[in-house]
Simulated assay, not measured.
Amino acid sequence: MNISGNTIFIPGATSGIGLALARALRAEGNTVIVGGRRTALLQEIAAADPAIHTVQIDTTDAESIRAAASEVIAAHPDLNAVITMAGVMRVEDWSQPSGFLATAEETIVTNVLGPIRLIGAFIEQLRSMPDATIVTVSSGLAFAPLRVTPSYNASKAAIHMLSESLRLQLEGSTVKVVELEPPSVQTDLMPGQRESDFAMPLEDFITEVMHLFETQPDATEIQVENVKFLRYGEARGDYDQVVATLNSRDPHGH
């Protein structure tokens, strides 16, 4: 993805990585539209930076996605990039007889169905542009599991394979598919994660991601150095050690 000159929609960007990335992309001269469920947060973002556009969207609701897509495309007919940032990460205990199923279902609806529906809502718009990008957001946990978040791990593995598959299907079109693979980052995705010594400082993560976007415009996967321990364990042959280390160090890693 080119670092500037784009019109980018980022649903799920009212906080954390999404909002920080939206601000960094706006600073590089892109038109940025932030999407989120909470009107109050959207108003705060617009007040802090009037150059950032906002739209209300609930990525767990198919009709909300369709309505938001129509609104965004009508207001920004030059839209050429979508970053499917919205996601949730919840602890589940499958060793107990009940209590995990609702959490697991919410995770899959948000993290898998949400991006699928978003891409479906915007794919024709993106295909109509001379240079377009879909940025999916997986995780280091797509490649090595954290014990306490089984559905999250599975959802991000699904996003990785979805990205790989869409890239094959869209080969030869004007649409690129780029997978952003965060490690654990100091955000509020999980309780205690913002204070975790294991998690990467948010500012450092965004700086490195922007550098990778700028210096590797043809990259299919955006991987900061901190995620490569998880990403390549199987290829290196130390997968078991990676899983053991991950699950011994930080119960809130991402």
Rank of each mutant, 00 (worst) to 15 (best):
M190Y: 12
V112Y: 10
T103K: 12
G172H: 12
S163A: 14
I206S: 01
S95A: 11
I45W: 01
M210Y: 04
V137Q: 03
M85I: 00
S184R: 14
K228G: 07
V91S: 00
A68Q: 07
P150H: 11
K156Q: 14
L141F: 06
R26I: 11
T133V: 09
A46M: 01
D188A: 03
L19K: 08
A22Y: 15
R66P: 01
L113T: 05
D218K: 03
S165T: 15
M85R: 00
P183Q: 12
A47S: 03
R231C: 04
V137D: 05
G99D: 02
L246F: 07
D250E: 14
A20I: 05
S138K: 04
H254W: 08
D240S: 04
A154H: 05
T174A: 15
M161N: 15
R127A: 11
Q169L: 13
A74M: 08
T14N: 03
S128F: 07
N6F: 04
Q193L: 14
Q43Y: 03
A62L: 01
E225V: 03
F100Q: 05
R37F: 06
I10F: 14
M190G: 04
P182T: 08
E179S: 06
T215S: 12
I3N: 05
I222W: 08
G35Q: 08
V91G: 00
A40H: 09
E195F: 13
I108R: 05
N30G: 13
L141Y: 08
P50N: 05
T84A: 00
Q186N: 13
L101I: 00
N2Q: 02
T103G: 06
T59V: 14
A142F: 11
T187G: 11
L202Y: 14
V112H: 07
L113A: 05
A20W: 13
